[in-house]
């Protein structure tokens, strides 16, 4: 360790001056290019021949204010669905991933079913699953069929569960076999080794992609409007139909982005933290 009170040599002083000058120049350049691009975009859009009509039919402030309460009310449904679906899909994904790692002939059917599930539901478009669940299951006319909202939510959980299962599985497989060997050598059973040694490490490692899939789930929750419940998108659709103006869609879109921001922020933070930890910091 050198003393903190070190007088830089002439060569080092020259380097510092040069780097500082370069940094200032970079900031100025960035500001200039941003200004140019921004102005160009503004001129291009507002100067377009149809700009006035687009502004009237997509960005009408009065309509936005009128429909905001209805859309917000719909968004409350999206928010509740999001929390339920995200938690249920994470639980389902983890369960399926663990089932796929089970060894031994007894578990063959379980493994096969879990594999079949992840293969088919990653291929099936979510819209089709929602239609099949929300319209097909009530068609069976069974006693106690849940509402379309619940069925639509179940479609989202089943579809996302398949994606999340693969993310979890990648995490489980990324834990080095020597960790299992160490756990087993201490007398832990396979289940205990998974629970205390493998899964905690796996989940930590795949937290960023898991959260990213949760962000995707968040906006896909809006697709349940296809099955009928009045969520933010359905409310906006009603607004569009009544006013013959697209502004409610823009309002709903902005609200969805705002809803996603915290989760996106958390994802970035977790990713950054994971990268730092990998680099040996902290």
């Amino acid at each position: 360790m050198t003393s903190p009170f070190h007088e830089p040599s002439l060569i080092q002083q020259d380097r510092i001056t040069f780097r500082r000058r370069k940094a200032v120049r970079s900031v100025l350049l960035a500001a200039l290019s941003t200004a140019i691009v921004g102005t160009l975009l503004g001129v291009l859009i507002t100067g377009a021949p149809g700009w006035d009509r687009v502004r009237q039919s997509f960005l009408d402030p009065d309509i936005a204010v009128d429909w905001l309460p209805e859309i917000l009310q719909g968004l409350w449904l999206n928010l509740r669905m999001l929390v339920f679906c995200a938690l249920a899909a994470l639980a389902l994904g983890l369960l399926i991933a663990v089932l796929r790692t089970l060894r031994g002939p007894v578990f063959f059917p379980v493994r096969a079913l879990a594999t079949l599930y992840t293969y088919s539901f990653r291929g099936l478009p979510l819209i089709i699953v929602i239609y099949l669940m929300a319209f097909g299951i009530p068609g069976l006319r069974l006693q106690g069929t849940p509402s379309v909202t619940v069925l639509g939510g179940a479609a989202i959980v089943i579809t996302y569960g398949a994606y999340l299962a693969e993310v979890f599985r990648a995490g489980i497989e990324s834990v080095h076999p020597s960790q299992i060997a160490a756990a087993r050598s201490l007398g832990l059973s396979y289940r205990q080794s998974m629970r205390f040694v493998v899964l905690p490490q796996a989940v930590r490692r795949v937290a960023p992609p898991l959260l990213n899939d949760t962000v995707a789930l968040q906006k896909d929750v809006g697709l349940i409007s296809l099955a009928g419940p009045i969520d933010a998108i359905r409310a906006a659709q009603i607004g569009v139909a009544q006013t013959a103006n697209f502004t409610p869609y823009v309002v709903a879109g902005v609200l969805f982005v705002l809803l996603a921001l915290p989760l996106i922020g958390i994802t970035d933070w977790v990713t950054l933290r994971a990268a730092r930890r990998q680099a040996g910091g902290e």
Binding site: S178, A181, R184, G187, V197
Partner: peptide, 21 residues
């Protein structure tokens, strides 16, 4: 039961294999 046997034998590895979490 291999778990019961391993409970009576300690094994130390070349690369330590401590649980990092």
């Amino acid at each position: 039961d291999p778990d019961a046997v391993r409970q009576k034998i300690g094994l130390v590895f070349q690369s330590y294999n401590l649980f990092p979490h």
